[in-house]
Amino acid sequence: MVTRHGKICSFCGEPGSKDLQLIGGLGAQVCVTCIDDFHAIVHDEEKRAEAKGTFPWETMSDAEVLATLPQIMASAEQNTAFAHEWVDLLRERNISWAEIGRTLGVSRQAAWERFARKGGDKSESA
C-alpha cells in the first residue's frame, strides 16, 4: 500500500509528523514549511530574482555539501521505495510483469528482478 508514513520532505529532509504535514505525489513529498518558503519566493519579485539561477550548493561550503549528502540519499531511497510501492500496487491490480517491463522500457525479467519483493510476489507470469 502506498503511504506517507515514515516519509521525509524531499526538499528539506525533515521527517513528516503530526506537526509537520507532508503533501506530495509521484514520490516527492514536501512539507508545509517548504511550501510556505517557496510561496514567499514566488510572490516576491526581489526574492525571486535572488533565487533565479542560483543553486543551493553554489553558496555552500564543502562541509555543508557533505552534511547534505545523507539527506540527498534519504530522498533517493524514499523515491526508490515509492517505485516499489507503485509496482506492488500494479501487481495487486493484476498488471503483468511484461506490461510493467514494457512501460519501463525493460524486459519482464528485468522488471521482476528489480521490483519483486523477497518473500512477496515471485510470480514471473501474468
Rank of each mutant, 00 (worst) to 15 (best):
Val2Tyr: 10
Thr3Asn: 10
Arg4Ser: 15
Gly6Asp: 05
Ile8Asp: 05
Glu14His: 14
Glu14Phe: 12
Gly16Arg: 08
Gly16Asp: 10
Ser17His: 06
Asp19Gln: 14
Leu20Ala: 09
Leu22Ser: 01
Gly24Asp: 01
Cys31Gly: 02
Ile35Met: 06
Asp37Tyr: 01
Phe38Ile: 14
Ala40His: 09
Val42Leu: 12
Asp44Cys: 02
Glu46Asp: 15
Glu50Trp: 07
Lys52Ile: 14
Thr54Ile: 14
Phe55Met: 13
Trp57Asp: 10
Trp57Met: 13
Asp62Met: 11
Asp62Leu: 09
Ala63Leu: 07
Ala67His: 08
Pro70Leu: 04
Pro70Asp: 05
Gln71Lys: 09
Met73Ala: 10
Ala74Gln: 13
Ala74Glu: 13
Ser75Cys: 11
Gln78Thr: 05
Gln78Arg: 07
Ala81Gly: 13
Ala81Trp: 12
His84Leu: 07
His84Met: 06
His84Tyr: 08
Val87Asp: 00
Asp88Leu: 08
Asp88Ser: 11
Leu89Arg: 12
Arg91Val: 00
Glu92Lys: 01
Arg93Gly: 06
Ile95Leu: 01
Ser96His: 01
Ala98Leu: 12
Ala98Tyr: 07
Ile100Thr: 02
Gly101Cys: 09
Gly101Ile: 04
Thr103Glu: 03
Val106Leu: 03
Arg114Thr: 08
Phe115His: 00
Ala116Gln: 03
Gly120Leu: 05
Gly120Val: 03
Ser123Asn: 15
Glu124Asp: 14
